[in-house]
């Protein structure tokens, strides 16, 4: 009887451990993670990306709606093709990268959660912080849980991957980035694209 109880306890604990939320680290050793941005401008649209992505997300495959986390982008890692535009973009008049070195999104609540297979879509409400201004935003997010795929990406490591994709727009005027100025040259609306993968090693 005692042996049976011990086996039951071990099995239950193992089950609990398997169902526990996992923490995914989004600092990508392969340098694939990126946040893209696009602004309309008269001569040509300004297309750039940032590679300095980091952050932690806690994800439970059994309960994706309980996902929580924060993704951070290093402001200085923002790149556009024209060097003068990049210099202006990072200057104190625009993003002020020295004073505000991070752009971040911290999730608070998941709504409209739908899971099909390994993919979950949801509307995520959270705090978006840019140039020191924090605003609550609701953005569409697609998460793909890739069980036991870490080893295929990073040799000699076992674990899971979580891929997050999101496209949304913000207004630079909402974040005190030259509000009401140069809108004929650089649009107020900024299109953002997040394509990132996080790893949870075992």
């Amino acid at each position: 009887m005692k042996t049976k109880l011990t086996i039951l306890a071990i099995t239950t604990m193992a089950g609990m451990a398997l169902a526990a939320p996992q923490t995914f680290n989004f600092k990508d050793p392969k340098g694939i993670n990126n946040a893209g941005f696009k602004l309309d401008a008269p001569l040509e649209s300004i297309n750039g990306s940032a590679s300095g992505v980091s952050g932690l997300v806690t994800f439970d495959p059994e309960n994706p709606g309980a996902t929580k986390g924060k993704i951070i982008v290093a402001t200085a890692s923002l790149i556009v093709p024209n060097p003068m535009q990049r210099q202006h973009m990072l200057s104190d008049k625009w993003l002020d990268a020295t004073r505000y070195p991070e752009i971040s999104f911290e999730s608070k609540e998941f709504k409209n959660v739908q899971t099909a297979g390994e993919t979950t879509t949801a509307d995520v409400t959270g705090t978006f912080t840019l140039k020191g201004v924090s605003k609550e935003l609701t953005v569409p997010v697609k998460m793909t849980y890739l069980k036991d795929k870490l080893g295929q990406r990073v040799p000699n490591q076992q674990g899971d991957l979580l891929v997050i994709r999101s496209n949304f727009t913000i207004k630079r005027s909402d974040f005190n980035i030259m509000p009401g100025q140069f809108e004929d040259k650089v649009s107020d609306t900024i299109e953002l694209t997040l394509s990132i993968a996080g790893a949870s090693a075992k």
Binding site: G31, N33, S49, P81, N82, L146, L161, S195
Partner: peptide, 19 residues
């Protein structure tokens, strides 16, 4: 405008992402 850098897309077959 004149460019000094150009983006090169790098596919990741495991995640399906494009760096």
């Amino acid at each position: 405008w004149t460019k000094t850098r150009v983006p090169l897309k790098v596919p990741d077959p495991v995640t399906g992402l494009e760096g």
